[in-house]
């Protein structure tokens, strides 16, 4: 999955699941879109669906510090890389 594909998928999730239309990739999601910790839990669920595998507790904890869409994409790229290396 390319970076552009990840970004498109994440923007679609934000539109459908969080009803946030066209957020800036570097918007602070908490400050500008009231994205809170429970939203982050929902986002993790969506990321698991996207990757087709469950996240470890450690990976979930790392996600709780994410602030922007770009950071979400970095996070997913990192997870995808780890899973690729394992398989």
């Amino acid at each position: 999955m390319t970076r552009d594909e990840i970004t498109a998928h994440i923007l679609q999730i934000f539109r459908k699941e969080f009803e946030i239309e066209n957020p800036g990739l570097d918007d602070d999601l908490r400050e500008e879109h009231e994205f809170d910790s429970i939203d982050a839990v929902e986002l993790l669920l969506q990321i698991e669906k996207m990757l087709g595998s469950e996240l470890t507790q450690e990976e979930k904890k790392q996600a709780m510090d994410i602030r922007t869409i770009n950071q979400v994409c970095d996070y997913i790229e990192g997870l995808a890389r780890i899973r690729q290396n394992v398989s």
């Binding site: 910790s37 429970i38 982050a40 839990v41 507790q57 979930k60 904890k61 709780m64």
Partner: peptide, 8 residues
């Protein structure tokens, strides 16, 4: 911000 572990 904190309490993420308990929340999860």
């Amino acid at each position: 911000d904190s309490g993420a572990e308990i929340l999860l």
